[in-house]
Design a protein around this nucleic acid. Structure first.
Lengths: 330, 330
DNA sequence: CTGTTAGCGCTTTCAA
DNA sequence: TTGAAAGCGCTAACAG
């Protein structure tokens, strides 16, 4: 591996001079600069960011900690993060917990050892240990998706969006509305959206039958199973159902189709996500667009300002959302 | 930031000793080890991988260069890569070209400057400059998706898979088969799959009308537009169409639905990809599963063996695939 | 305009 | 079983 010393020797200058032309800092004669550039060209020398950052204390790397890599939501978020970061000369060091909570802690440590300048956490839980560790970090942290006390966050309006969904269903004349949620370990999706459902029903003076409220996990099959249970356990069948994610809703629609329950004629379906799937499924699914890529960009920007302005106060940013009415809604 | 020297001072030993307990190398008395460990615990010291790799020449980081972050195919590939790499103590430094060819070259340089131990290239083109630069690198490179001369590759069986698709269509009795392809800048998808189509048709003694062969880009709308053109420009309407990607096929199905052409009754549709979309669209799309996550894992493994066995010869691995017959096929 | 010197945080002989 | 010394590749005063 060719180093700055080799270049200096070959160009017949000191390595300081080489450093100067590398960083366009200080004075260098045209002659020396030309010579150095030529040698660099010939040798294919690429300066070591490692050595550089050992001195400068700047790595220009941000750690991005994901719960999982391959979901549509997350890949859109990462797209947004990558866009802003790379535009600003930063690189992403990727870490995925693969849905194992303990791995988040481990990765947090590893990212630190790599001297990332900040950590972006795409969060699906607010587990105590995680929060404590996050708060103890000396580098800036920005979380996306969950409200973590003491750290800057980009948040979705889960309560409002869910409330709007149920309101819309009620406005359309529905009075028996089912709900498919997820575990409360994920507060944003599991708690906020459910609370909004209950609140909205209550404020409209509508009852909620026990069988109408089901729980699943984040996939299609689980939505199908939840819908089956709802159909079986309801005294009076709902005329509409709100699933907290698109995949859950798609699963529900599968069951409905299978059971001969027409969507939207006898059952309306709505969800949150605006995934590709929601648009091309039959009938197209009414849902809420959360603008994940934009959320990713905002998170990255927030991180950048935190890095740049020492002692910046923590900020909470709320993302806007948009209801998309489609044929699954009557 | 607390360093190894601080720990040494606080523990009353030399930094050599601290290094020894950190790396469990050499002899350290129980007493010294205990003391050091305690101080580390108290201070929250995390060793700098940067300084370490400056000495050891090992960074345990692999650069992953993507054409784009947020596609289903790519996120599955990255999932696979991440899985294997993190299991082996490696981290991923992410770079996305965002579909700008020039950015690939730039990122290649940046990844080198970060002293990644190897580069995994998820390729969609085999552009001369790229290939030349790749070949000139001194660190191991593994490419996924395109055959790049001189470097180890994990490849999909594009020709065979496409040939099988068209064969199947012919076996089902179709004789007028349309084709929606993409630009030849992407050899794997744009050339191989098209060649297979032509070859298979020819070998079956079937004609190909000019209007039957259309070209799109990698999205749904473009598939819809291509299908429209096919419908208009064909003298005799095909009874089946093979689109080289799922999204193209989904677009085609949109047009077909809109134009009142029944799928599969008057037109069968097949593609390659096995995306989520293909499964839940109506009717479900017959397609080919490429096992992207597995491909990612294989690529990462290939990289690891290249790093570990100096001067390993370049290898070309072919991924298996599986035809999935679904209702879009009659 | 240029070079000398020191040192970033760590590992690795080598000698004790 | 431990420490001193050297050095990885680079930058940043400082002095010329």
């Amino acid at each position: 591996m060719v180093t700055i010393n080799d270049i200096a020797d070959l160009a017949g200058v000191s390595r300081t001079t080489v450093s100067r032309v590398l960083n366009s800092s200080g004075y260098v004669s045209e002659k020396a600069r030309k010579k150095v550039l030529k040698v660099i060209e010939q040798t294919g020398y690429v300066p070591s960011e490692h050595a550089k950052s050992l001195r400068t204390k700047k790595t220009k790397v941000i750690g991005v900690l994901l719960p999982k890599v391959s979901t549509e939501t997350i890949s859109r978020i990462v797209e947004g993060i990558e866009y802003v970061l790379s535009e600003n000369g930063y690189h992403i060091l990727l870490a995925s917990a693969n849905l194992v909570a303990a791995k988040e802690l481990e990765h947090l440590q590893l990212l630190q050892s790599r001297r990332v300048e900040g950590i972006i956490l795409v969060a699906t839980n607010t587990n105590d240990e995680l929060v404590k560790m996050i708060q103890s970090l000396t580098i800036p942290v920005t979380a996306l998706g969950q409200d973590i006390p003491g750290v800057s966050c980009v948040l979705y309006k889960d309560y409002e969006a869910a409330y709007d969904v149920v309101s819309l269903l009620i406005k359309k004349g529905h009075t028996r509305i089912g709900f498919i949620g997820v575990d409360e370990a994920d507060p944003a999706v599991g708690i906020e959206r459910k609370k909004a459902y209950y609140d909205c029903m209550k404020e409209a003076g509508l009852e909620v039958e026990e069988g109408w409220v089901q729980k699943g996990v984040f996939n299609i099959d689980s939505g199908a199973a939840a819908m089956e249970r709802m159909l079986i356990k309801s005294d009076r069948q709902p005329t509409a159902v709100f699933a907290v994610t698109d995949r859950l809703a798609v699963g529900a629609m599968q069951t409905l189709k299978q059971e001969g329950v027409a969507v939207p004629d006898t059952m309306s379906v709505m969800s949150i996500g605006a995934s590709d799937l929601s648009e091309y499924v039959t009938p197209p699914l009414a849902t809420v667009n959360y603008f994940h890529e934009k959320a990713g960009r905002e998170t990255a920007k927030l991180m950048l300002t935190q890095i740049r302005t020492k002692g910046a106060s923590i900020k909470k940013i709320s993302m806007d959302y948009r209801l998309i009415e489609r044929d699954s809604l009557l």
